[in-house]
């Protein structure tokens, strides 16, 4: 049984690093790079990033989010309900789990549907694309913001739970 728990934790870390690593890539690298490419008149532009990089990054991003959540839920096991209902000491991992859950819903409910319009996977007018860009950016930034407390509570549940016990 301990092997199963270790494998679940390992998978949770691998998928989580893939998900959050790509979230940080989008926010710290790709979005500023595309803005710089658009401002660089006479430069090569950002079309290659949009065509070849972004769809692959988004594929790994959104499915890694699902695997991270499923592995995390499996890892919680019988603590899933006490964690999600913030009962006692389970509230520490529960807050991390809720933040992760909200982030997953933002990925699939807001970021991906808007990115489909931006990347041309779903037909959209220029006006709809501009609106989708703004919505997707703010949703991505929201997830970047939420990742900070999410990782704090994930770490605290394993390594600093005692700090919360009065």
């Amino acid at each position: 049984m301990e092997w199963v728990i270790l494998l679940e934790r390992w998978l949770h870390f691998l998928a989580g690093i893939t998900w959050i690593g790509l979230l940080y890539y989008f926010n710290f690298v790709q979005v500023p790079a595309l803005a710089a490419a658009a401002a660089d008149t006479g430069g090569p532009g950002g079309a290659a990033i949009t065509k070849y990089v972004a769809p692959r990054a988004l594929l790994w991003f959104r499915w890694a989010a699902v695997v991270t959540w499923l592995a995390g839920a499996a890892l919680l096991g019988s603590r899933f309900v006490p964690a999600m209902t913030l009962q006692g000491e389970n509230a520490i991992i529960g807050l991390g789990a809720w933040l992760g859950t909200i982030m997953l819903l933002i990925v699939w409910g807001i970021i991906w549907p808007n990115q489909k319009k931006i990347l041309g996977i779903k037909p959209a007018t220029d006006e709809e694309k501009a609106k989708a860009r703004r919505t997707a950016l703010l949703a991505s930034r929201t997830n970047l913001m939420l990742s900070i407390p999410m990782l704090f509570f994930m770490a605290a549940s394993a390594h600093g739970a005692g700090l919360f016990l009065n």
């Binding site: 926010n27 006692g88 509230a91 900070i148 407390p149 919360f164 009065n166």
Partner: peptide, 30 residues
């Protein structure tokens, strides 16, 4: 008022503030 999520720095500061708020909430629950 400018949206803090419009900049990376504003987003990170918002995340740190949210962490502090949630730590206070967690302390009151646990």
């Amino acid at each position: 008022m400018k949206n803090p999520l419009d900049s990376i720095l504003g987003t990170i500061i918002s995340g740190l503030v949210l962490t502090a708020v949630l730590v206070v909430i967690a302390n009151s629950i646990v």
